[in-house]
Design a protein around this nucleic acid. Structure first.
Length: 568
RNA sequence: GCGCCCAUAGCUCAGCCGGAUAGAGCAUCGGAUUUCUAAUCCGACGGUCGCAGGUUCGAGUCCUGCUGGGCGCGCCA
């Protein structure tokens, strides 16, 4: 089914053609209720191109428009906008259709892409910390939305499992390991031996040498070191999985850096042979002399000691995703500091002839309430698990306060849904590039643009249906009379317009903002329009609006990776 | 030195391709509950969109310069 926006857009295109005018402008939701529901600036654009009077052109366009079944007669306003006000009947009809559509009106993408999404990507032998939240939550939401739009999405966990840190970890494992501590908290012990080895190495060159030696042995395939390494990867993976379960974020494949090891020599040979790379000061480099910003920033793909680095791995990773996985689109979600690196990697890929759509999707940092990078009092990164645990504990207290009569088990489940949802939503409701200030009080607030506010709108609807004690039956016809009904219905029809927009510039916050406005429209409707006590046909119409609002909230939150409770 | 990102109400933030008198939430103040979850709703107050130029019928949005903050820049990832 089509959205009002696309119906009007098509009609505009037809009218322009009929008027002998070229396609121009766009149809957008009205910026203000006074201007109706939709508007187009087509006349303004054409007037500029042709040096004609915009209002006269607008009239000419209107003369060819036929939107009687959707809207009141279009009007000209301001410098030459054409405004459309939807007819209540058209809105009611559209809402009825949405209820019959299990996609809530969201069209599948015209072209189905195979998209590899790389996000999260934690390091082995290190704890996941609060900084991983953004990449995880943003990447997951984008993956969910792309999947819903019909794309073939492969979620790839590109874990850091082959860094130079393993020299120290293996040295520590052999000389410093406390088995009991490892059994208790594997990652904490791995971090401890890594840090201790690092400290020792600073004061004792012999230790530093020993660490280097362990790394060389690992890279040469030494059996003992490989088995220690394997154990570290397994322990870390178990830890990651626990976090993924809590967050309900899951991957299709996990191809860590080590996966690409045996492909690296061939990558460099190929780059040299094709002339993309060249020798420089003993290293193999790619220069970008024709790109001003990159002219003085070469990318090293093989160090002068013959070793490979992460650039080599990332070139190999691009290869794999396109050749082996068949991707035509690659999205990499990481923090902003890696922008230069991926710019280089993508440029190398283009020079190798790859035409896939590469996107580096970056995000800002999470700051503490002191506006500095979020750290514990002792200056450590805040552990991801601690954040998630505290979110649930805090949510649990609120549930206890507001709804003490629920069963313990139910309270726990609700606290989980609200707490985790709040953490995710706080991140997703904000434009990804801006740094955001982490605040428990704000994200768990019951008012404002928060997950609990949206979840509450859903819960109120579920409560109505529980009270009604009846299955939802779609009425033959919806009849909209009250302004609050009209506003809610209009919001509901816009879900299908918003969802695809998110992928334009990777902005899940557009969807979050929409859902907030929808919840707002629902709450206003809830206050103004009794549902169960209303007479027919208002009662059936209002139940239908409730049903559609519940489904839209649930679907929208699900696309953000957020669950809804039945009670709270 | 060069490059990337950011700067909007007291606070936290929206504002995608340039569009009409720049919007929310929080906070503050004032209202609303015999009613389906008041975990809500309605209203008021609050702005030199960092500064200065430029392009345009029209600039928070695009261009140039500047200021302030964050990050990055040849052998870590």
């Amino acid at each position: 089914m089509e959205t009002f926006q696309s119906l009007l857009r098509n009609e505009l295109a037809r009218a322009l053609g009929a008027a002998g005018l070229p396609p121009a402008g766009e149809v957008t939701p009205a910026t203000d209720a006074r201007f109706g529901d939709y508007q187009t600036n087509a006349a303004l654009i054409l007037a500029k191109q042709r040096g004609e009077n915009p209002r006269q052109l607008a009239q000419k366009i209107i003369d060819h428009l036929s939107v009687d079944d959707l809207a009141e007669p279009p009007t000209i306003a301001g410098p030459g906008f054409i405004n459309f006000a939807l007819k209540p009947d058209a809105l009611a009809e559209q809402a009825g259709q949405l209820l019959r559509d299990d996609r809530l009106g969201v069209a599948r993408a015209e072209k189905r892409h195979r998209i590899v999404i790389d996000f999260g990507s934690p390091n082995v032998a290190k704890p996941m910390h609060v900084g991983h939240i953004r990449s995880l939550v943003l990447g997951d939401a984008l993956a969910r939305i792309a999947t819903f739009l019909g794309h073939d999405v492969i979620r790839d966990n590109h874990i850091g499992d082959w860094g130079t840190q393993f020299g120290m970890v293996i040295y520590g494992w052999k000389n410093l390991l406390d088995r009991a501590a490892l059994a208790r908290d594997p990652i904490a012990e791995l971090v401890r031996i890594y840090k201790t080895a690092n400290e020792l190495g600073k004061s004792d060159p012999a230790v530093l040498d020993a660490c280097r030696n362990e790394l060389v042995k690992l890279q040469a395939g030494d059996e003992e070191n490989l088995s220690i390494w394997n154990e570290c990867v397994a322990l870390s993976t178990r830890e990651f999985e626990a976090a993924y379960d809590i967050l309900d974020i899951h991957y299709d494949i996990q191809r860590g850096e080590s996966f690409y090891n045996d492909r690296l020599p061939a990558v460099v040979d190929r780059l040299l042979q094709s002339g993309v790379a060249e020798m420089s000061e003993g290293a193999v480099c790619v220069f970008f002399r024709d790109i001003p910003e990159l002219a003085e920033r070469p990318c090293i793909v093989r160090k002068s000691d013959g070793g490979f680095n992460y650039a080599t791995t990332d070139v190999a990773t691009i290869d794999y995703r396109i050749r082996d996985l068949g991707a035509d689109t690659v999205w990499i979600e990481t923090g902003a500091p890696q922008q230069l690196h991926f710019r280089q990697i993508f440029e190398i890929a283009r020079r190798e002839g790859y035409t896939a759509d590469f996107r580096h999707i970056t995000h800002g940092s999470i700051l503490g309430e002191d506006r500095k990078l979020m750290k514990t009092r002792s200056g450590e990164n805040v552990a991801l698990r601690d954040v998630l645990d505290e979110a649930v504990v805090r949510a649990r207290k609120i549930v206890e306060q507001k709804n003490p009569d629920l069963a313990e088990e139910e309270k726990n489940a609700i606290a989980q849904t609200i707490g985790i949802g709040a953490v995710k939503y706080a991140d997703l409701s904000q434009y990804r590039m801006t740094d955001y200030i982490f605040s428990w009080d704000r994200m768990l607030s019951l008012q404002g643009n928060t997950a609990p506010y949206l979840q509450n709108a859903y819960v109120r609807i579920r409560s109505i249906f529980r009270k009604a004690g009846e299955e939802f039956v779609l009425p033959a016809e919806l009849v909209l009379t009250e302004p609050a009904e009209f506003n809610l219905a209009k919001r509901l029809t816009q879900f299908a317009e918003i969802v695809p927009q998110v992928l334009n510039d990777f902005r899940p916050n557009l969807l979050a903002n929409y859902l907030f406005e929808l919840a707002n429209a629902f709450h206003a409707f809830y206050e103004a329009c009794p549902v169960l006590k209303a007479d027919e046909p208002a009662r059936a119409t209002r139940l239908a609006l409730c049903e559609l609002a519940a489904r839209t909230l649930q679907q929208g939150l699900d696309l953000l990776g957020i669950d809804v409770p039945e009670k709270m």
